[in-house]
């Protein structure tokens, strides 16, 4: 356990996470950020996409990361997920066996193994989280077989159960995901992410690109699933409505740094940082 209250133990703790693209020059850190007005170093040799990012997520809690495009929020998510390496910091995660591991020190194969049943990711682009040339059921079977299930009947049953829960019509179960609409692809991605009951799920812009009514439906679904299954989540979005609806606490990022962090309601009602004020004003307009 990562030192927290007995009621809601912390399951994920991100400490001073940093990611620099290009030249790994530490001097670039001081030359970038909200004060400098850019995440790119003056000589252009490095991009400090995220720096000094710290937050923790309790069991069953949803934590939001909000900011405009290029603010570093997806970089943070991908560094936690293991899609790219981090330059600094640590990501402590409470494991199923009760131990605690720093994900950033794990080997790529260990991190992939983690994605099977401990840490799932739902991407903005369904093509990243799904194999579009495989059926909806097959995409779920992929995760179930990765976790060692070798029983065809049980795979079918569990896949049907998940698709039903994520409101994908069962008569589409054996159709290729390529033939699905955007909203339905996100629902299949959600079903696949939940296949092995992971305690933590990362969402990267889960509804961006969907039309308003479909997005609302997917958001409703995500919210009820998070509540029902008691999953801890990190939700990355540029959309206030998404963060407001799904999360209880969140942080605001700009130019690769955290500019404000707090309870979601409070932050939106009474933004302190000038950037957050501008962001909220723009969203409320």
């Amino acid at each position: 356990m990562i030192g927290a209250s007995p009621m809601r133990p912390t399951v994920l703790r991100v400490e001073q996470l940093g990611k620099i693209f290009g030249s790994q020059d530490p001097a670039a850190v001081a030359q970038t950020g909200p004060d400098a007005g850019s995440e790119k170093s003056p000589d252009g040799s490095s991009v400090v996409a995220a720096w000094d990012v710290s937050f923790d997520v309790a069991s069953g809690e949803a934590f939001g990361v909000i900011g405009e495009s290029g603010s570093g929020k997806s970089t943070v998510m991908r560094a936690i997920a293991g899609d790219h390496s981090a330059s600094a910091g640590s990501v402590w995660m409470q494991r199923r066996d009760g131990s605690t591991s720093d994900l950033l020190t794990m080997s790529p194969s260990e991190r992939r193994a983690l994605r099977v049943d401990e840490l799932a990711v739902v991407y903005q682009d369904a093509a990243e989280g799904l194999d579009l040339n495989v059926t909806a059921g097959g995409n779920i079977a992929d995760r179930l077989t990765a976790a060692g299930c070798r029983h065809f009947g049980q795979i079918r049953e569990r896949a049907a159960e998940l698709l039903e829960r994520t409101e994908v019509p069962l008569d589409r179960m054996d159709d290729l995901v390529r033939t699905f609409s955007g909203g339905m692809r996100q629902r299949v991605q959600l079903a696949r992410a939940l296949a092995n009951r992971p305690p933590i799920v990362l969402f990267d812009e889960p509804t961006t690109g969907l039309d308003a009514s479909v997005a609302a439906g997917v958001l409703d679904l995500i919210r009820s699933l998070l509540e029902e299954l008691g999953i801890a989540a990190v939700v990355v979005s540029h959309d206030f409505a998404v963060i407001e609806m799904l999360t209880s606490r969140c942080m605001v990022m700009q130019h690769g740094r955290v500019v404000e962090q707090g309870l979601t309601d409070q932050l939106f009602e009474d933004p302190q940082a000038p950037y957050t004020q501008r962001l909220v004003a723009a969203a409320r307009a």
Binding site: S109, D131, V134, T135, G138, N139, D142, T145, R150, F152
Partner: peptide
């Protein structure tokens, strides 16, 4: 092969059986 990650082979068998 290095990670004995054969889940996609299993998916192809699953899809074959379904189809």
């Amino acid at each position: 092969h290095a990670e004995a990650d054969y889940s996609r082979m299993w998916v192809s068998l699953y899809e074959d059986k379904v189809r």
